[in-house]
Each structure stands twice: as C-alpha cells, then as structure tokens.
C-alpha cells in the first residue's frame, strides 16, 4: 500500500507540473511533449486503479496516435518550432479565477461527499475479458454508435483536409 501511495504522489506531482507546462509554455512542440508526460502519468494512475486494459489503450491510442496527430498538426500549420509570443489571449488572467473557483467548488463537493473514504485494498485487477464482455454485451449499442462516430470522423477529416 505504501509503495502504491508513494507511486501515486510522485506521478501526481509530475502530472500536475506537466499539465501546468502544457498550458503555459510558449512553444507548441514543447506543449505537445509535456502533454505526453501527462498522458503517460494518467496511464500509470490507471494501473494503480487496477485498470490494465485502459492503461494499455491509453498508451497505444493517446501517446501513440493522438500525439503523432498533434505533432503533424503543428508542422502542417507551419507553427514555428521555437518559442512564440502570441499563443495566449490578451485576457488570459480571466482563466485563473475561473479555474480556481471550479477547483474550490469541486474540492468542497469532494471533501463533503467522500471525506476519508478509502478504496478497497484487495482490488482484483479487472481483466480484459470482463471489459470485452461489457462492451459486446449490454453496451453494444454505444459501441456501434461509436463505430459510426469514428467512421464519420475518418471521412470528415479526409474531406476537410483534402486539397482541391
């Protein structure tokens, strides 16, 4: 338990720092790389939460595919690889109070609702088979809908990005 707790806090601090860099850095490519750190950290937290399959999917889909997309997007829009000065809005300070208010609201709600409740200690790792039984059983219809969404996204992306 202690080892897991230590792991959690190390990853959590890393994630928060990296997330702050994503939204503050002046370099688009750096932001993408910091985002990789956050996503990898999230994958680590999923493993701590006994969700192996989701963690692996996270690594494959997010870090593998989505990040490549982001880097391609950065390059195709010919953003400068170096630092840029006009990435932020003129009124970016408004974001700080909004974020803080949200944090306070959620923090209050969470403390009140879950207080010092603990996660079950002897959590069994959820196997891939259980997840697939869920997906192809009671949640088959959302799966179909999702397939259509992906199909539409593929076609849409091609149509949007085509040059003619």
């Amino acid at each position: 338990m202690i080892a897991q707790n230590i792991g959690f806090w190390i990853i959590a601090v890393l994630m928060i720092v990296a997330a702050l860099r994503v939204v503050t850095t002046n370099n688009v490519v750096h932001a993408a790389l910091w985002l990789v750190v956050v996503l990898a950290g999230a994958a680590g937290q999923y493993i701590l939460l006994a969700a192996e399959f989701v963690a692996i999917t996270q690594v494959l889909v997010y870090i593998g595919a989505v990040m490549v997309l982001f880097l391609f997007g950065t390059m195709l829009t010919r953003a400068r690889i170096g630092a840029e000065s006009d990435l932020n809005n003129s009124y970016k300070k408004l974001g700080i109070p909004v974020g803080l208010i949200m944090l306070v609201a959620m923090g209050l709600a969470l403390t009140r609702s879950f207080g010092a409740e603990k996660l079950p200690d002897s959590a069994k790792v959820v196997s891939t088979q259980e997840v697939s039984d869920q997906i192809f059983g009671p949640y088959l219809l959302p799966f179909w809908a999702l397939s259509f969404v992906l199909l539409a996204a593929v076609i849409g992306a091609i149509v949007l990005a085509r040059k003619d």
Partner: peptide, 16 residues
Amino acid sequence: ALLFSAAAIAALVLVI
C-alpha cells in the same frame, strides 16, 4: 471563458 465562468459560479453556488 464566459461559459466556463458561469458554469464555475453556478457549480459553486450549487455546492454551497
């Protein structure tokens, strides 16, 4: 920004 601020304030009010 306006949307999120409104949502944040509404959430805070609800929680309180």
